[in-house]
Design a protein around this nucleic acid. Structure first.
Lengths: 306, 306
DNA sequence: TGCCTGTTCTTTCTGCATTAAAAACAGATT
DNA sequence: AATCTGTTTTTAATGCAGAAAGAACAGGCA
């Protein structure tokens, strides 16, 4: 039956809002809370009822107030705040991209359902989404084929990515100097410099900075297909980034420097130099990923500390 | 419960194979038939059993033979040879793209299930696919938003389409002269000339010819993301082509001529002129579609003879 | 041995049931 | 009038069950 992840996540987020208020503070109205937590009033009412049950919230007449400060054990575990589908999606991607599954292998929904403890209905719906990622292929009335992240796959992705990103830079530099995107770009540049300044400590922050820069460029196109594709790329990157941890620090440094050059070029609005920096950066990134794949293919699964 | 569309489609296709054989002819083995019809032996056996039941196939010992020639009423209706999902997909696209549904309207799965007579499970799975088309947007725990084919949507599609098609021409002209694609291109050119020669009679054949030309170009990239995008474009084009039937003949003529110029340019392998023809054709096509949208928006639904 | 058919087992497809969440409705209170 | 809370009605999320399709197994015959 339907899980209650929305309730649990709402409950946790509600506790978070109450955490720093002194006991006795009156609570906002149900409507206000529903709006703030972005869930329906029905669910807020369920949350508030549960909070009263636990003695965190009290009420005098119609008015609710905070009865005692919430503590850590009052929260639901994070894992339970994801819907069945979202939870499966995350665990599946981790399992298939970070485990030792190889291209060409077959997957069947019944076994995945057993393995992940959800119903085949949920599995089917999620696997269908991954078809769009190019990761899986559906064979009617039969299993799913795992296409895998092969060298060929990465070439195809980067081929499209280069077209889209070059196109995105053209939209970006058309923005007037006063547009908020330029301020955001400055903030991104600052973030880059901060990471570089303490590289040994902070290189793990690189993926977030990378995402921030490329996303703002893609968003400037306002094109849903380009953005949709970038979301796929970002997801895959998220799960494959840790494939090769050996020289992560060095790779991050290189990419950060390339980004800074790229940002400089964007500021000049000179299309030739922008194109050059963009291409250079994407080629490095592509080569890095291909390198990871090859390293990975050469490493027996048991030697990986995943 | 699960439908038996595979069985029915197999049954029909099996009849088709038997149609022109004289009674008494021995049938191929189960394995051979399964391979030929691309279904499992289990299903073939069910088909053969049904054929025996109806007296179309007889058997003496282990050997089956054709007992009587199959007739038209022996077949299942075509509508029943599609799986629930495939049938819904087709009817839904027709309904939403050719009916008078407007951008911004909400769709709910429960009502669609009632309207189309299938289960919500099937509906949900299919609607998820259309998200990928950019047509629908899912709002968790709530209805689906129909984004519609707006002018903005078409601009975004053609923006990407131009990038991909220009890219595709570069792959295409790298093929050696001896590659089969060039022969196919000649055949396509011939098809175009044939249609143009009897335009008044044959202009309705244009969409198929259009599909054939653009598809062979996109296929030459060997890039799954480009091909996947083209499949979306082709589907949308299929269902929107008839929006404005008034000057269909004239529009087809223009497009056919542009295609012929485009094909000539491809043969020269001169990238500049290819790019020019490609862009010109896509701009015409984009403008035509936008025109249809505007005509359509201005026409009250009742006046349309859909 | 290799291919055929009969049989059994497994997996997908798809309708349905149940619960969570949203949305609509209604009276009450400021 | 506007906003609040209590109640009822709809709809989406998701597990499950039954039938169809696929896959594997097994004995028999050339």
């Amino acid at each position: 039956m339907k899980g209650n992840a929305v309730f649990k996540s709402g409950y946790n987020r509600c506790l978070h809002r109450l955490a720093h208020l002194p006991p006795g503070t009156p609570l906002p109205s149900e409507n206000e809370l529903a709006l703030a937590l972005d869930i329906s009033r029905t669910t807020i009412r369920a949350v508030l009822a549960a909070l009263e049950e636990r003695g965190i919230v009290g009420r005098a007449g119609g008015q609710r107030h905070l009865a005692r400060a919430p503590t850590e054990p009052d929260h639901f575990p994070d894992a339970q705040t994801l819907s069945a589908g979202a939870a499966f999606e995350r665990r599946f991607l981790e399992w298939i991209l970070q485990g030792d599954f190889r291209a060409g292998q077959l997957l069947n929904a019944a076994e995945l359902a057993r393995q992940f403890g959800t119903s085949t209905t949920t599995i089917r719906e999620c696997l269908a989404r991954f078809q769009h990622f190019g990761l899986l292929e559906r064979r009617p009335n039969s299993s799913w084929l795992f296409n895998g992240i092969t060298v060929e796959f990465v070439r195809e992705i980067y081929d499209v990515r280069e077209m889209f990103e070059l196109r995105a830079t053209r939209s970006f530099i058309e923005r007037p100097d006063t547009a908020p995107e330029w301020r955001e770009l400055t903030a991104i540049e600052q973030e880059h410099r901060t990471i570089l300044a303490h590289l040994d400590r902070d290189f793990a922050l690189f993926p977030a900075a990378d995402e921030r820069l490329h996303r703002i460029l893609h968003e400037s196109t306002g094109n849903r297909f380009i953005l949709d594709f970038y979301n796929v790329v970002a997801t895959l990157f998220h799960y494959t980034y840790r494939w090769n941890r050996e020289d992560a620090r060095q790779r991050s440094a290189t990419a950060l420097m390339e980004h800074l050059d790229y940002i400089d070029a964007l500021r000049t609005r000179d299309q030739r130099s922008i194109d050059a920096r963009c291409r250079k950066h994407l080629r490095t990134a592509c080569a890095t990923l291909i390198g990871s794949i090859e390293t990975r293919a050469a490493t027996p699964p048991l030697m990986r500390q995943s």
